[in-house]
């Protein structure tokens, strides 16, 4: 514990890294809500359908992801070695695999089509 806590206030109220301001949190929250509302409204009311709907869903999902990373995960403020960044990149690879792989597998599924 010793080497760990030397840099921390005892109860984990870490003071050494900035953790964003009220303004950035509120902004991030509002952006998340908007990005959630857009696809819901568009799809539930059948305003977009088919491929266009897929594109809207994917784009808003990706933007949502970016918002979360910058406003809540504080990606920019990390010190070296940038483990968060490394894991994030790996995570992106996995997410891409999940999405693209699923589309590929389901698209050519002879039983479902």
């Amino acid at each position: 514990m010793a080497q760990h806590h030397d840099t921390h206030a005892p109860h984990g109220g870490d003071a050494h890294e900035s953790h964003g301001s009220m303004k950035s949190y509120v902004l991030g929250f509002v952006l998340s809500l908007v990005l959630t509302a857009i696809p819901l409204i568009l799809v539930l009311n059948d305003i977009v359908t088919g491929n266009a709907a897929d594109v809207v869903l994917l784009v808003t999902a990706v933007l949502q992801f970016v918002v979360q990373l910058f406003f809540f995960m504080h990606l920019k403020e990390e010190k070296k070695p940038r483990y968060n960044l490394m894991v994030l990149l790996l995570g992106l690879v996995i997410v891409l695999t999940i999405v693209a792989g699923s589309i590929w597998i389901m698209k050519y599924n002879m039983v479902s089509h």
Binding site: I94, T97, G101, W104, I105, N109, V111
Partner: peptide, 21 residues
């Protein structure tokens, strides 16, 4: 630990995703 994420479909070869998959 990374490559284990790229093999999952071997559990459902029989599901009918086609020869390429």
């Amino acid at each position: 630990s990374v490559f284990s994420f790229f093999t999952w479909a071997h559990h459902f070869f029989t599901m009918g995703s086609g020869a390429n998959v």
